[in-house]
Design a protein around this nucleic acid. Structure first.
Lengths: 186, 186
DNA sequence: CGATGAAACGGATAGCTCATCCGCATGTGT
DNA sequence: ACACATGCGGATGAGCTATCCGTTTCATCG
């Protein structure tokens, strides 16, 4: 993934660093803007990342991997409800603390080629945890597999609409998720 | 609100008609686009509606009024929980069937001067219904007044993320709201 | 170590959308 | 019918996206 040549690798890193900064400060990603801030030509940025989405994906990848790792651990939890709810909590917290993740989560898979596989792993883990929780009678029957992602995005979105700034997001998100989970439990 | 002069009033109507069509077919509003479709100069459109938001507001106004009317009736309902949940149902259904409404709902009041008052009426009614339901012990204590709008937007957003097209939105939205209401009830 | 080809760089620039401005046309009141 | 006010239209500039190609840098091999 990272380029072979030394200069290319250096620029790749610079671009990602700048992009991460922009995402964190809430600025919408603009490739020309990234180029200027990184002290590079636009051409360079566009060669590495043909679209804003491509850059966004790459920025979000480490977080996605962390979530997948966390999920694999959750699969070893004996308490199905705890494993399920804890995983959802992780998903929501990640989304509200990282705008890049929120965008990737809400975007259809086909426009995000690079992270599709990771995203599907994360969804598959969620589905598995849901299936177990359902089998244990802990979750309402009418919650379908395909509802998981939308509901997580919904909680994250509600948090964004509510909050004035990044500061009070986490507690709000937790409160909203708690409410949702209460509604989901059997 | 509508201009006095005959030609101006006619153009105003044309613009609103076209805008309503565009919103309904899911196309994002672009003022130049509206002008072209309405057979008018861009200047005309920009004079009536300086920004996309202003046009969006005006497009959404009738729906907002309908909601406020519905709300005033809900205030006469004797069952606090029924009045409250029914009102929320109305809010969510309106949002998922009208993208204009969803945008207006999720936008901060200060960028939408024209509909601010209407929006606040709608929120005030919701708050009143919530207060009554809370007083009757039907709603969880930790649901704050300011949570109402974000949660409604969240449900609408989740519905958008879930659905493939406008067709299956309503049932999905109802299902999600049911789940949320279950979590909100004491 | 110097030459050579491949790969990457940079930024000029074309294409596009947004929004303004002002000369011209149209409607309204006398 | 006239004059003034009001509204109309679209040319136009500002800002952003994305491409293309001449120049530069890197890695490899004799």
């Amino acid at each position: 993934m990272t380029p072979q040549r030394k200069d290319a690798a250096r620029n790749w890193d610079r671009i990602l660093t700048v992009a991460r900064e922009l995402v964190d400060e809430g600025t919408p990603l603009q490739l020309n803007d990234v180029a200027r801030r990184a002290g590079l030509g636009v051409g360079t940025v566009y060669r590495h990342f043909p679209t804003t989405e491509a850059l966004l994906e790459t920025v979000a990848t480490p977080c996605l991997e962390a979530i997948a790792d966390h999920g694999r651990k959750a699969l070893e939890d004996d308490d199905p409800w705890h494993a399920f709810s804890d995983y959802l909590k992780r998903l929501v917290e990640a989304q509200v603390s990282d705008p890049a993740l929120a965008k990737v989560a809400a975007t259809a898979a086909d426009t995000l080629p690079r992270t599709t596989e990771l995203k599907q792993q994360i969804i598959a883990i969620g589905t598995e945890l849901l299936t177990r929780a359902r089998a244990a009678g802990a979750v309402r029957e009418d919650l379908a597999d395909g509802d998981l992602v939308p509901l997580m995005c919904g909680v994250a979105y509600a948090t964004y609409v509510h909050s004035d700034g990044p500061a009070d997001r986490l507690p709000t998100a937790r409160r909203y998720l708690d409410t949702l989970l209460r509604g989901l439990s059997a």
